[in-house]
Amino acid sequence: MSDTMHEVTYRIRHFDPNRDAAPHWEEYRIPYAPGMTVLDGLWKVKELHAPGLAWRSSCRMGVCGSCGMLINGKPGLACNTQISELGTSLVAVAPLPNFEIVRDLVPDLRPMIEAHRVLMPYILRDDVEERENPTGEFWQSPEELEHYLQFSYCIKCGCCMAACPTYATDPSYSGPMPLGQAHRYNSDSRDGGFAARRELLFGEKGPWRCHFAGECSRVCPKGVDPAKAIQLMKRELVLSFLRLRRAKCPSGLAKKPEGIGRREGIPEAPAPTV
């Protein structure tokens, strides 16, 4: 796209369930400035043409995962997508597919969040007392960290769910984000929750419907590879089903450093609030 471009056309899908029977498209022309993101353009549209236009956004730096939407047919973050990257002066923006629409560009992500919650995306351990009132840190080596690190970059934006052809047709399938995150915790050396999650993952909430289209990994704005997580999870579950998986104990507390005291003038950390 030319750097000398002065205007871009936004083609936006609108839907207000209180007013519209079906979604419809509207076009707006807005001034273009180099460095403009799709999100910047949406703000401009709102300012100049459509004050009632609704979408979600927050951080503007690809961290919060709020502004996932369908941009020129591909799920992505509006704040993370430069208009110049699109290679056209027409920016078509629609809400993420595979979700109900709350309004305009706002998808209802509750099914995804619920599927995520059900698969217990947190450290599960038997030592409840240490978990609730921690006295130290659980030990983890850099090699153990590598097993799940890339999956922990997920920001739950829902782009992978919108791109998944299986989730599009089978609402009982958990989808790439919840499954990827279940694998992230199953692979964490501090976690002991594999058996608890396995009960769900062995059934229809598990990864069995995934046929490795790989679209989730292609569209992920954080470079996470949920398709890989799902294949690794399948392997772990099959090995577990065949009783060939080596059970692992969650790691214990790391040794506290000895002979090191607090420097003078540095206050104690405040008591944990959670």
Partner: peptide, 13 residues
């Protein structure tokens, strides 16, 4: 609950 895992394992086998 194990049905899907079992069917998949047999599928691979």
């Amino acid at each position: 609950m194990m049905r899907d895992a079992k069917l998949w394992t047999w599928h691979v086998a």
